[in-house]
Structures are given as C-alpha cells and as structure tokens.
C-alpha cells in the first residue's frame, strides 16, 4: 500500500510545487514559502483523508478544508486543480484581472474553497462553526480540517476558538499547524514566539501530536489520521516543516514569504523541482 502510493504522492507534490512557483512567478506576487511548506500536508490530506468529490464541490456531507492561512492560495489552488476541481491551465490566471483565483481565499471561488481568508486567526472559529453545525445536522462523518501557520498562533482569536472548541467537545474538528518557523517579516521566534504551541493547546483541552515531519508522507498521514479519529475532544497536529521546501535558496529564507522570484530564480527553482526544461 505504502510502496505503491508514495511514488504517486512524490509526483503529485512535485507538480504542485512547480505550479506554486509558476503561479507566483507569473503573477509576480504571492506567497511561495508557506505554500511549499504546506504542500506535502495538503497532498496527503486531499488524497488520503478528505472525503470530497471534485465533481460535486457542494456535496453537503463532504469533509471541509478551511484554509486559515489564507495567503497560501498557491498550494490550495494547485491541489484543487490536481484533484480535478478546475483545469490546471486556469492556474495561470492566479492574481490576474478577472480571475476566480484571487490572491487570498474566497469562499466558493472556485468550488472547493470552503472559506474566505486573508486576515489571520479566523479560520479555527469558522471551522468550529462548521463542526458544530455538522454535529447538529447529525452528519457524524464530516470532519473539518483547519490549516494554520505557526505565526498565526499569535492572533488572539485562535485561542478564543481553541477554548470554545474544547468546551463544545468538537471532536470533529482538526487543527493542523504548519510549523515552518517563518512569518512575514522574520523568523517567528524573533517576531513573537508563540511556543510552546502544543502545550498551549493541551492546556486549552485539546489532544495534541507534535514533532511530526510535515514532509514525510507516512508521518503526515499518521498524524492526520490520529487527529481525525480522536474522540471526545478536538485534536491538533503540529507538523515540523521547512518554509520554501524543495527550492534550496528559498528554504528557511524569510525573503520568500511573500516575494516573487525573478527570471533567474524562477529557472533555478524549476530545475530543482524537476520541471521539464
């Protein structure tokens, strides 16, 4: 099972990373670093866990994915296109006039985008609302996954939501933290260190897994599956990741949080990502 699926995930994540870089290069704006750090998590989530149907994005009993770090649309759109929600060619319209693919997530544009985002810190609350609604509807199979950044943990609303989710025993809610250690201006620990994040979620009544490698498909699948199957309390899984993963000069480089590559950087990045010449 693992032996046959992992090569597929490698190919998928290579294509997604290439498309992330292509989109931001073509738009000359956008957020590469946090997209590349979340690529492997997103790929495992969409191929292994998420119950969804790209042909029926409004299917009421689908699992929900809430992109709370809403600037990381490049990876979200690239994954959705790979899953068949819309043609991969449309990725070239990213951030351009008339596009459905705005710089930050817009609910329903395209189908498969389940929330509007951009201002940080709101996604966990929005996902909690979905979770409470799914439970009230008796849709017991519906899991809501919320992807946040580690810098995002500085937002106070995250902790309002953390408190409420455990109070309401929202065990159909999964918080995923992409711990890539870099935020807009600098390294997270230099800006406003939110650590220890895991201890905080535990103190707020969550089940927590941390220390997992967010670029190891098996560890990502294990962590997400554990979080999905946790009962009686909400679950938070923290993945250690590398900002800009896959492109050597973008890795761990705060300069590639929200900056676009130039032509030389683009060519080098695509070569490293294994794109055809």
């Amino acid at each position: 099972m693992v032996a046959t699926t992992q090569p597929d995930l490698s190919a998928l994540t290579s294509r997604v990373r290439q498309n992330v870089v292509r989109m931001v290069y073509a738009a000359q704006s956008g957020h590469i670093g946090g997209s590349l750090s979340a690529t492997d998590i997103m790929a495992v989530l969409y191929t292994k866990l998420l119950r969804h149907d790209p042909q029926k994005p409004d299917w009421s009993e689908r699992d929900r994915f809430v992109m709370s770090k809403g600037h990381c649309t490049p990876v979200q759109y690239a994954i959705l296109a790979e899953m068949g929600y819309f043609p991969v060619e449309e990725l070239s319209t990213f951030r351009k006039k008339g596009t459905r693919l705005q710089g930050h997530s817009v609910l329903g544009k395209p189908g498969g985008v389940d929330n509007t985002a951009g201002a940080l810190g709101m996604g966990l609350s929005f996902g909690l609302g979905i979770s409470l609604g799914a439970r009230l509807r008796g849709m017991n199979d519906v899991t809501t996954y919320v992807l946040m950044g580690d810098g995002e943990q500085q937002e106070g609303q995250v902790w309002e939501a953390a408190m409420a989710a455990s109070f309401h025993k929202a065990d159909n809610l999964v918080a995923i933290i992409d711990r890539n250690r870099i935020q807009n201006d600098d390294f997270v620990e230099k800006q406003m260190d939110p650590m220890p994040i895991g201890e905080k979620y535990r103190a707020f009544g969550w089940a927590v897994r941390e220390g997992l490698d967010g670029h190891d498909f098996a560890q990502v699948e294990e962590g997400l599956t554990w979080a999905r199957d946790t009962k009686g309390q909400p679950a938070c899984v923290i993945f250690e990741t590398t900002k800009g993963k896959g492109v050597s000069f973008m890795e761990n480089n705060p300069g590639f949080h929200g900056a676009a590559p130039n032509a030389d950087q683009f060519a080098a990045a695509m070569q490293e990502l294994g794109a055809d010449a």
Binding site: S60, V66, L107, D114, N115, M122, S125, F126, G127, L128, G129, I130, S131, L132, G133, A134, L136, R137, G156, Q157, E160, A161, M163, A164, F167, H168
Partner: peptide, 25 residues
C-alpha cells in the same frame, strides 16, 4: 441544542456563526 454559547469572545462567535451558516442554518 440549537443554542451555542461562546462566552465573552465576540470574534470567535461571529466567525463561528459564519461557519454554522454554511451548514444551512
């Protein structure tokens, strides 16, 4: 069962209200 309390946390309440509405309420 149709009442959800959020405590003195208005930001969480309004964002969660939005999420709840997407479930058809």
């Amino acid at each position: 069962e149709r009442w959800f309390e959020f405590g003195a946390a208005e930001q969480d309440m309004f964002s969660a209200a939005a999420g709840l509405s997407t479930m058809g309420f």
